[in-house]
């Protein structure tokens, strides 16, 4: 199998620094076409910094990023055109109605949609009746649906979601998981970040555990559990004799609480 055809994203030796502080150190991983890949790590692990480098928001100190065959450093516009993005804290112009925000982003991604087409898109996420509200007037779950629909409006090959379910209630969270799986069903790849084990186990095909800016392990959730089942640290943190992904995660990243 040709690597170039199977990978939608290849990150190689990526390092990101803020001044002297190394937030991401020599990170490598790749996302296959049509898979949901999770970057799992505690607060401050470097998840958002990694995504920011992929999105072109900050310039990596070193390393290479190839998105759908385009080098993000050399062909940033082409690399970004294949990306759908939901930032960790998304904000849209507070003066605009939801429908106008969608119109803006449709246009920015080169689509010319009619108002009816946009209303239909809002209908798919059951927000037709919110079209003429301001984004800030929507509930957290509704805002998340809107930013997800904007992230996928141009049918991108790779969708980046930064902590998409943080702060959502269980119902909204499950609904969002289904929407994320629906993106995969359409043949697109998803790269999401999370600090939730449950989320990593429930929706991700493969995960990379990241901590202190380094990738510690990459595999399917089950394979990670199987691989580390016999580690003394994993057994020592496990509870009630059952080894979970969380046990593996805690054993690999340590017990220290992160800010």
């Amino acid at each position: 199998m040709n690597d170039r055809q199977e990978n939608i994203l290849t990150v190689n030796g990526l390092s990101v620094s803020y001044g002297k502080f190394q937030a991401v150190q020599n990170v490598s991983f790749s996302v296959l076409k049509g898979e949901i890949f999770g970057l799992l790590g505690p607060n401050g692990a470097g998840k958002t910094s990694t995504l920011s480098a992929l999105e072109g928001l900050l310039k990596p100190q070193s390393g290479s990023i190839v998105i759908d065959g385009y080098d993000a450093g050399e062909k940033p516009l082409y690399a970004r055109a294949s990306l759908g993005v939901q930032l960790q804290s998304t904000s849209f112009q507070p003066e605009l109605f939801v429908i106008e925000v969608l119109e803006l982003y449709a246009g920015i991604y080169g689509l010319t949609l009619t108002r009816n087409q946009i209303l239909a898109i809002l209908g798919e996420i059951s927000l037709e009746d919110q079209a003429f509200k301001k984004f800030g007037q929507l509930s957290g779950g509704q805002q998340q649906r809107v930013s997800l629909v904007i992230a996928t409006i141009h049918n991108p090959k790779l969708v980046l979601l930064d902590e998409p379910t943080t702060g959502l209630d269980p119902q909204s969270r499950r609904q969002l998981w289904e929407r994320i799986e629906a993106i995969r069903e359409k043949g697109h790849a998803v790269l999401l970040t999370t600090h939730s084990m449950e989320e990593a186990e429930s929706v991700c095909d493969r995960i990379a555990i990241i901590d202190h800016g380094r990738v510690i392990a990459v595999d399917t959730p089950q394979a990670l559990i199987d691989k580390h089942r016999a580690d003394p640290e994993v057994i020592s943190v496990s509870r009630r004799g059952k080894i979970t992904l969380e046990d593996v995660f805690i054993a690999l990243t340590g017990k220290t609480v992160r800010a």
Binding site: E55, G56, L57, L77, Y78, R80, A81, L83, V85, L87, S89, T90, S91, F92, Q93, Y105, I108, Y109, G110
Partner: peptide
């Protein structure tokens, strides 16, 4: 963060 969201578009 409105500019950041715009800037990740192509």
């Amino acid at each position: 963060g409105i500019f950041q969201r715009l800037r990740v578009a192509p």
